Simulated assay, not measured.
Amino acid sequence: MKIKHMAIFSLKYDLDAPETSKFLEDGKEILSSIPTVENFEVVYQISPKTDFNFGFSMEFTDKAAYEAYNNHPMHIHFVKERWEKEVERFQEIDFQAYT
């Protein structure tokens, strides 16, 4: 069953800082190139009900595809070298269709 994975986050930089744009652009380029990732989007948070600023949203065909993403060397490297250093706080949410 398809999985929708969302990581919502705030960066350590100001919203209009060049580092913010660089992080979002690099995240899209790197993570969307992992073979099991589908429908990758960088999203900007607009609701006053939360104070996270951005999100990465993507889909996987099934749990095996999601695990392949989590264990892919490019994902591991991005998390270690960029995410852990530049993200101030985050929350991950994973959804499957309710049937």
Rank of each mutant, 00 (worst) to 15 (best):
M1A: 13
M1W: 03
M1I: 13
M1N: 08
M1G: 15
I3N: 02
I3T: 04
K4A: 07
M6K: 02
I8W: 03
I8C: 08
I8Q: 07
I8Y: 03
S10C: 10
S10K: 09
L11T: 05
L11K: 02
K12I: 08
K12L: 11
L15S: 13
L15M: 12
D16E: 13
D16N: 14
D16K: 14
D16A: 11
P18L: 04
P18F: 08
P18A: 06
T20A: 07
S21V: 11
F23W: 09
L24W: 06
E25C: 08
E25F: 12
K28Q: 15
K28D: 11
K28E: 15
E29M: 10
E29N: 11
E29W: 01
I30R: 08
I30Q: 07
I34N: 05
V37Y: 00
V37K: 00
E38P: 00
N39M: 05
F40M: 06
E41R: 03
E41G: 01
E41T: 02
V42E: 00
V43F: 03
Q45T: 08
Q45H: 14
I46A: 10
P48T: 10
T50V: 13
D51C: 10
D51R: 06
F52R: 10
N53P: 03
F54H: 07
G55P: 04
G55T: 08
F56E: 00
S57F: 07
M58S: 09
E59S: 12
T61E: 11
D62W: 01
K63I: 15
A65M: 01
Y66P: 01
E67A: 14
E67N: 14
A68L: 02
Y69P: 00
N70A: 10
N70R: 12
N71S: 12
N71P: 06
H72W: 01
H72K: 04
P73C: 04
P73W: 09
I76K: 15
I76H: 05
V79M: 06
K80E: 15
E81A: 12
E81S: 13
W83T: 04
E84K: 12
E84L: 14
K85L: 12
E86F: 01
V87S: 08
V87A: 07
E88V: 00
R89W: 09
R89M: 10
F90Y: 15
F90N: 09
Q91T: 13
E92M: 10
D94N: 13
D94C: 10
F95D: 05
F95K: 01
F95S: 06
Q96A: 13
A97V: 13
T99S: 14
